[in-house]
Design a protein around this nucleic acid. Structure first.
Lengths: 188, 188
DNA sequence: ACCTGAACACCGTTCAAGT
DNA sequence: ACCTGAACACCGTTCAAGT
């Protein structure tokens, strides 16, 4: 773990302006919002954006980190309230709804649960995978979920369900129906 | 139905060159291949590309129409060889495999099965939906598929499965496993 | 150490001029 | 009727100059 020494005051201010501008832009125009536009909105040179966030993915992740962590935290709330199987189902439902309703978030979650090196090491990835693992393993111990399915697979399948639901209406009205089909298939 | 009168010879030639160049480019670079590059490869002015194919979607559809129709035809072959339930499963499997392995095709199939006006009227859309409808209805008559699910929903869910499988490895090695989970959930 | 913004490359799209 | 390619707008990315 490398020590992060504090940013210079102007750097810190620019960083935060960029995050705010990015959140607005991604929400408005989706994951492909113009980076140049984001820099302009933040009142910052485009080079500054690249200095803080070398790739679009970095910026997307930083802008939505709060939401991702809220989703992860929600897993533990649900685990405390409901029996394991129901907690998992409800969490997946909320995950899919959030993923579809917040523009740009679906792309981020998608890359967070995708296979392939670096993505596995992102903050978003580990946060969301940790949450899924706790719920999945509890449901398996309870015996309401196939023992041969891995947490990451459940996340990917849920992402598939979100995709299907998005195709159906662009919003999320079919999520719970489609998810219940998946849940049937995941029974032991 | 409006009569299509034959194209002028040079127009026809350019049209076909564009299709070939597009197929190569989409296969190489995916659905977002540069249109300018496609025109150049076809040895044609960029305006000509736009004349024949006003939108990227039009070009993508035209370039892959042959493949889509082959997939649709495959449905009837399978229906003749296998019991309805198995024919549907096998067809969905082949659909997902093709959809992932041929770059650019997934985007086309996705938009073909998406909700929302115009897409429903494309040649690709009607072709693939027709095939799915025949298989789904046969399986429902046979009693191996839930009666309350619509063909278009099955297509969307299969597309979700393809998405999940693509997240898993970028190729298609998980398709049959994931599809079998879906099939479980679709039992009556 | 950090910021700025001009500069470059690339792409999509349109349209006047040409056959 | 159809084609060409220059022209324009827009975007991503880099980097020399500035503080």
């Amino acid at each position: 773990m490398s020590q992060v020494r504090p940013m210079r005051a102007d750097a810190r201010r620019n960083y935060e302006r960029l995050l705010k501008a990015a959140a607005v832009a991604f929400a408005e125009h989706g994951e492909n919002a113009s980076l140049d536009d984001i820099a302009k909105r933040a009142g910052v040179g485009s080079g500054t954006l690249y200095r803080h966030f070398p790739t679009r993915q970095d910026l997307l992740e930083a802008a939505y980190l709060g939401r991702i962590e809220a989703i992860a935290a929600r897993a533990d709330e649900l685990a405390a309230e409901l029996p394991p199987g129901e907690a998992l189902t409800e969490w997946l439902n909320e995950l899919c709804v959030g993923t579809i309703q917040v523009r740009g978030l679906k792309a981020l979650v998608g890359s967070a649960v995708a296979d392939g090196g670096s993505a596995a090491l992102t903050v978003c990835g580990t946060s969301i995978k940790g949450a899924a693992t706790r719920l999945v393993e509890a449901a398996q111990r309870e015996g309401t979920l196939r023992p041969d399915v891995e947490p990451i697979e459940v996340l990917r399948l849920a992402h598939g369900v979100a995709t299907a639901s998005e195709l159906a209406d662009g919003e999320g009205r079919h999520i719970s129906r489609y998810l219940s089909l998946l849940t049937e298939g995941l029974r032991p």
